[in-house]
Design a protein around this nucleic acid. Structure first.
Lengths: 147, 147
DNA sequence: TTAAAATACTTGCATGTACAAGCAACAAAA
DNA sequence: TTTTGTTGCTTGTACATGCAAGTATTTTAA
């Protein structure tokens, strides 16, 4: 019975997906204290690091499509955490005061998440894995753009 | 500019997600020849290996929730690839003839997918990574159930 | 200077997935 | 034997995400 799962999961596609789903769940659990889903939290964090980013650069940073970023920003705007400033075809996204004030909680959630998975998976392992996956994602992305 | 992405992606959560999304995209591209999205193809493959599985065991194998499996099976049933047999509260899922006949294409798609990512990421790397991620997923899953 | 192409963002729509709640069947206890 | 709990599956609903197409602006070329 277990062997079926084994043989099935000898596919990178599935291991990666399953892992990602579990981590997503964990992320959402930890980010619950922020009242936001994980992606929204991360978006606030990036803005915390560098204000006034435009959607496309956010999309690049977070490895999401621009349309997804639009959706994230919209929702954060509705909640009053960010504000958009458009000039011509360009748009910049800024934290509002409320957004700024919310940063500490988000950071806390982030570090909780970090601690939780490093505790389970090991700090060394996690670091290596993060690097490997980041690198691999870049490799795949390049292929994608060249096709 | 790149450093923001770097620092951001020093989070396992995001590397894993980004990687998984890219692989999903790749999977869908390869499974396009089957007329199905990747998960549906994999479901047919598991049934090919062992007929008459019940939804919950499929869910376990594919690391999905039962409700998701219901949805997958429903759709495959509508397309005529599988059929359900219920006895009491238990259900078994079988391949139809059409489903059986479709297996080779699905297998082809699977091996194409395998070849494509191993070519890009290396066979050794992929194998290791698959194992690591599978193992890690199991670790996380155990924690999840114990909480 | 006007027409064409490229860019930046947004919207319509589709999809895979999960959670929570429901329902039906079975098991255990009274 | 009735009641109570448990299990297995399905439905309602919600959501993150992507693709394709749309709109508006800027750049390039004629």
């Amino acid at each position: 019975m277990e062997d079926l799962r084994q043989s099935f999961c000898s596919c990178l596609y599935y291991s990666a997906n399953a892992f990602s789903r579990l981590l997503t769940k964990m992320g959402d659990e930890e980010f619950a204290i922020t009242g936001l889903a994980t992606s929204y939290g991360f978006l606030l964090l990036t803005l915390g690091k560098q204000e006034g980013q435009n959607p496309s650069s956010i999309a690049h940073t977070m490895q999401l499509t621009p349309s997804t970023v639009t959706r994230l920003v919209e929702k954060l705007e509705n909640k009053g955490f960010v504000r958009r400033e458009s000039a011509g075809r360009n748009t910049q996204v800024f934290l509002t005061e409320k957004g700024e004030a919310h940063l500490p909680v988000v950071q806390k959630a982030w570090s909780n998440l970090y601690q939780r998975y490093t505790e389970l998976l090991g700090e060394e392992w996690s670091k290596n894995m993060t690097g490997e996956l980041f690198q691999a994602a870049q490799t795949l992305e390049e292929e994608g753009t060249s096709v």
